[in-house]
Design a protein around this nucleic acid. Structure first.
Length: 654
DNA sequence: GTGTAGGGCGCG
DNA sequence: AAAGCGCGCCCTACAC
């Protein structure tokens, strides 16, 4: 990369060029973006941004942020790798210079100065750009658009981290010397002296991330579709706006659970409390053979726990489980406390395209997608999430979306038609009627309750477990964990075979996907692209599942491929699963876009669920409209029957 | 000291 | 022939 280093006053970006921006900031064990997330990190007392690297691709400049001529890149397009981080830093610095200009609108919604023209095209009628004022001139008004190269890389199923992305996209090994040097720079004793003390070569190293980010963006940006960019923006906005939280309960329970952990820890004759080794040693001292696993779901442990229920080792094991549960909850509550904004809402982050099939994932130190569903140790975490005053939560989720999508992708039109004709059936009932010989007129649920039949539980286990080629051994566990059934291996084998015999379309889907993956071995570069049935999308930048560098496993006859920079096993069951999950994600994503266009912006999304804050007066009508939008037939998936359940609740829950 | 692998467990 | 999949975070143990 031939980029000329210049002094800040000399930095004059080329007309029309996108500008790469990368901040360097202080961090240590107690003040890190990993633990605190972007917002809490940049508002930590120890936070300091001590350098910024800016480049237009031809020249680059590294200096203290206050020394950079921000007005020269005002109104331009910027790009950062993990934009939400750099944006949080930039906004924090702006707050320091000109005060916090975020206005609080009704319901706690914050209006942000950023507004992209792309957004304007897709979704008219949201917040306006607020500009002007002598002070803002001094700091600058910011970019017209601020893109994220990391999000674009994730969409294309490249590694998300900068070094991995550079290697995969540009074929550039980021010189280890560069990375090490830049690490050395981070550890530089007195960051404020940065501008004075750094030699030219060190500055060039520090500029490298911005230069690479811009180079990456030039490759991946054009392949990132407009509606996906829109989803990314909606995701970021949602997390920055955050959730309304019952802080009284959070504060109280954080203390209570912390105390509980300390008490139980003190009651164990070893430390650290969760050391499996020390637990095992203590058991043996008492002449008791410890269990092979301490996991609550492990069958061996279940038997062991029963056997030693009254004894001291039995109590230790139970206390360790309680410490884990309480400790987890205490950590979640503490993370929530750290994310409390001045407007009392809790910021959080959701990672756009965090999973390879495209789902969102948790991130930023607090995962809001895996809050316990039920009350645990005297706390219902979900109930700590509330609606803003005068509002109520509209919680809408798709019923059994993946099971429906699997039938759709397998082309099981008979089953889909039955489902469309009988909206009162759920997937378990459909499955029992279509493939398990259930013929009664009453609902399967009523039938099982009246007669004590286990048919529905079995149908549930089959639907949840067998659609993606799990074998008999796994099915024994799946049936136990998911449906509470106790089945022997031989019976499991019979059920698995029966399921496959009665669901030929699904079996054919596995086999066809497997064969297609093997076929691509004949063509360079061994890339298996599975197109989504989304015809509305620009084919040049459509959505695919991409398995790169497909190859035979060195030891056997199984396939592997590179996904998101990692080599993973590949077979028909996995591909069918990924395709199903990815398509279910697209169903939710397109509903999200339509809801936003109708003026409904979710405050939270969890895979098959969207949560909105709606005004009390219009709540019922709003919920009806939202579920209507979610259930709308999709032009790109004709014949896929969608069902959405909606609830109004003052506090979040299942 | 830092980084990471693996167990455990929460979610869809 | 057989193979559930997709995540994040905490804790411990261990390698460097």
């Amino acid at each position: 990369m031939n980029v000329k280093m210049v002094r800040p006053e000399e930095f004059t970006p080329m007309a029309g060029a996108v500008i790469g921006v990368d901040f360097e900031t202080y961090y240590d064990g107690s003040c890190s973006v990993k633990d605190l997330g972007n917002w809490a990190y940049v508002h930590h007392p120890k936070f300091k941004a001590w350098a910024v690297a800016v480049t237009d691709g031809a020249t680059a400049c590294v200096c203290e942020p206050s020394a950079f001529p921000w007005d020269r890149i005002d109104g331009r397009e910027w790009v950062s790798h993990n934009r939400e981080f750099d944006r949080a830093v930039w906004e924090r610095l702006r707050e320091e210079v000109i005060g916090n200009r975020e206005e609080v609108i009704g319901g706690g919604e914050t209006r942000n100065a950023q507004r992209s023209t792309l957004n304007a095209q897709v979704d008219a009628g949201i917040g306006e750009v607020s500009r002007g004022g002598a002070e803002s001139q001094r700091w600058g008004d910011g970019p017209s658009n601020w893109w994220c190269s990391a999000a674009a890389c994730a969409f294309l199923q490249f590694p998300r981290d900068l070094a991995g992305a550079c290697k995969a996209v540009l074929g550039v090994e980021v010189d280890k010397g560069v990375r090490d040097a830049s690490k050395g720079v981070r550890g530089f004793g007195v960051p404020t002296l940065f501008d004075l003390d750094l030699c030219h070569a060190e500055k060039a190293y520090a500029a490298n991330d911005a230069v690479m980010c811009l180079a990456l963006w030039r490759e991946v940006g054009p392949l990132w579709p407009a509606h996906e960019r829109r989803l990314f923006e909606l995701t970021c906005d949602m997390g920055r706006r955050g959730l309304c939280v019952d802080w009284v309960t959070v504060d109280e329970k954080a203390v209570e659970l912390g105390r509980r952990v300390a008490e139980l820890t003190a009651g164990l004759p070893w430390f650290p409390a969760l050391s499996a080794k020390k637990f095992a040693a203590a058991c043996r001292e008492r002449g008791v053979e410890p269990p092979r696993s301490l996991a609550a779901g492990d069958e061996g442990f279940g038997e062991w726990a029963e056997e030693h229920a009254g004894s001291e080792p039995g109590r230790w094991a139970a206390d360790m489980a309680t410490i884990r549960r309480c400790g987890r909850l205490a950590n979640v509550l503490e993370s929530m406390r750290q994310r409390r904004k001045p407007d009392s809402r809790m910021v959080y982050e959701l990672k756009y395209y965090g999973a390879s099939p495209g789902r969102w994932s948790g991130g930023g130190g607090l995962n809001v997608q895996n809050f316990n569903r039920k009350e645990t140790e005297g706390l219902d975490v979900r109930k700590c999430v509330m609606a803003a005053p005068g509002h109520v939560l509209a919680v809408a989720d798709y019923s059994q979306i993946e099971a429906r999508v699997l039938l759709y992708l397998a082309g099981d039109t008979d089953a889909l038609k039955l489902l469309a004709d009988h909206p009162e059936w759920d997937m378990y009932e459909l499955h029992a009627r279509a493939t398990m010989g259930y013929r009664e007129t009453e609902s399967l649920k009523d039938f099982c309750e009246r007669t004590g039949s286990g048919l529905r539980q079995l149908a549930k286990a089959r639907v949840l477990g067998l659609g993606f080629r799990c074998g008999a051994e796994t099915f024994v566990r799946v049936a136990r964990v998911m449906a509470g059934l106790r089945i022997g291996y031989e019976e499991a084998r019979r059920i698995v075979n029966e399921y496959r015999a009665q669901n030929p379309k699904i079996v054919h889907l596995w086999n066809a996907l497997q064969a297609a993956a093997e076929m691509c071995l004949k063509d360079e570069p061994y890339e298996y692209r599975l197109p989504f049935p989304c015809t509305q999308y620009d084919p040049r930048c459509g959505r695919y599942l991409i398995y790169r560098d497909v190859a035979w496993h060195p030891l056997g006859k199984s396939l592997t491929a590179v996904v998101g920079g990692e080599r993973v096993p590949l077979h028909g069951g996995i591909i069918a699963e990924n395709w199903t999950q990815g398509t279910a994600r697209d169903v939710l994503a397109s509903a999200w876009l339509r809801c936003a266009a109708a003026g409904f912006r979710p405050v939270l999304s969890v895979h098959d669920e969207l949560v909105f804050e709606v005004r009390e007066e219009t709540a019922h009508e709003d919920l009806r409209r939202i579920t209507g939008i979610m259930e709308r037939q999709l032009a790109w998936a004709p014949g896929l029957p969608l069902k959405a359940d909606g609830k109004l609740m003052s506090r979040y829950g299942k």
